[in-house]
Structures are given as C-alpha cells and as structure tokens.
Amino acid sequence: MTASTVTTQGSTPNILRNIWVWIKKVPPVYPIFLVIFITLGFLNPKGYQTMNGIMTYLRPASPLAVLAIGQMFVLALGGFDLSIGAVVTFVVLASSKFLANDPTNMVPNVLILLGLGVIVGLINGFVVSFLKVPSFITTLGMMMIVRGAALYYVGGAPKGYLTDNFRMFGRNYIMDVPFFTRIPYSFIVLLILTTIAFIVFHRTNWGRQILAMGDNVRAAGLSGVKLKFVRMMTFVFCSVFAVLGGIMVAGYGGVNVTIGEGMELNAIAACVIGGVLLGGGKANVIQVIFGAFTLQAIVNLLNQLGLPKPYTDAVQGLIIIGVVAYSALSTMKKR
C-alpha cells in the first residue's frame, strides 16, 4: 500500500485527491442513509428493492419529513419549536370532532386548522420576539396549551372517526402509475411542500435572512434584517407545516389521543441527522428530508430485525447518537 503511493507520485494522486476532496464534501447524511437503506434491502429484498415496497416505506416517512422541514426553519433561526407534536395531536383530535363524520366538512376543516396553525405560530413568534422568552420555553408552554386545548375541546377522548377524504392525504395511494406502480399521496404532498420550502429557504431573501439571524442575530439586525418580522413569519411557517404534517399523520395513524407525542423530538432528531446545527446558522432542506428518511429507515430496520419494541427504543437511541457523532466528527475535521 505504501509502495504504490510512493511510485504513483505523478498526476494520478492529484486526481485521486480531488476525488477524495469531492467525496469529503458530500454531506454525511447521504452515505448514512444509503448504508441503512441498503442494509434494509438485503434483509428484506421484497420490501425495499421493489418500487412497491419503497412506496410503502415512503408513506410514513413523508409526514415526518414535512414536520422536520418546518422544524428546520425554526432551528436555522437558532430556536426550537417543541409545540409541533401537540399541534399534530390537536389536528387529529379537533378533526375527529369537527368533521362530524361528514365528508363535505373536509375543506373547511383543513382551512380552519391551517388558520389555527397560523395563530399558534404568530403567538409563538410574538412571545419570542416581543416578550423575549426563549423559544424553548415559549413552545414548551405552547405545547401544554395546544395539547390541553385539544383534549379540552373533545372532552378527553376522540369524537367520531376521520372521514375517508380527509385521511386520503396520509393513507391512500395513486394506483397504476407506470414504473412507480403506486405513489402515496403523502409523498406527492411532500414533493410539493419540499419545492415550496426549498425555494423559500434557498432562493429568497427571507431564507437567507433566517440563516443570517441564526448565525449572528446582532449582525443580521445591524445589516437591516427586520428581526421580529422574520422570526414571527418563521414560527408561522413551522406551525403551518406542523398542521400539514398533522393532516398526513392523521390519515396514516388514525384517531389517537397520544398520536403527536414525541414527534417534535423526532423532527429535531431528523434535522440534526440532516446536518442542521442546533443554535442556528446551518440548514439544508434536501438534507433534512433525507435525515427524516434515515430516521424512518432506522425504525423500519429495527422492526425488520424483529426486535421487541423496548429494544427498538434503546437501539434507536444508540444509532441516533452514533449518526450525529459521525456527522459532528466529520464536520469537525473539515475545519
């Protein structure tokens, strides 16, 4: 090995080095995702090497990705949003009552939920911007408020079921698509939302201002960013995405009082796997989506191995630490 490197000290090492430099530039989330997904493919060829299986996997992965995108906006700003899990619970429980088992209520229901999402986001943003309460505490309080409000509204237990046209977004597939065989609605929703989020975050001033604020609030403020306005809009964006994610979760998971619990932490974990820096200043929409896909793949992998639920939790914890440590150490070396 040493001999060959000594003899080939011509132009080839340069090319090799260039390739190596290029490889090192690849964000760690992609190799991690590939390794986990290929392992899944080996363990269950039918489930993860066919289009059919991959689409089944994408169905629950998409809502998580939507929640993670919303969370990413707030994390990029240097904040947290712990209220999105409660928002998901609220979406599910409030829909169960408001739909009143009547499919024609679907559109007004979605509009009202989106409106409530805007209000929750506005309050979060207002409290952080004007009352200067750290977002961790603001959204923790909001989590209690929204969850309490959801349970208060339905009286502690879900009322009725969710109509099929409401559940469509999270549960159904578009059948008989050439090549893909079938595509879950949730994935199409994810693609649309990803496009919106990508353009907003990477192609508009607003997105750059968010990152600038996450990097250094003072510098951003001095260079003319309207801090309070940008922050409020970011929290609104996150809450609206939480509502949209909640609608997809409702379709997939059905009515359940504890359905949203822990989702905020999952979304944050997905973001961090996707290379988002907690504390702000570094985030990428596509990487975050793959972070969410990786997290879902980890869950599926552990199910595939047939571990009982408790062990799944433990191993999931270890893998999340490992993945984040890997990406933390690999970004450390670059400096």
Binding site: P310, A314, Q316, G317, L318, I320
Partner: peptide, 16 residues
Amino acid sequence: VNPFIATLGVGLVVKG
C-alpha cells in the same frame, strides 16, 4: 454530539 441529541439518545436507551 449536541447535548440535546446526546441526552435524548441516552434517555431512549435507558427507556428501552
């Protein structure tokens, strides 16, 4: 590892 994720992960392990 960011403390938020590290302790979340360790918590998951203990929970398991």
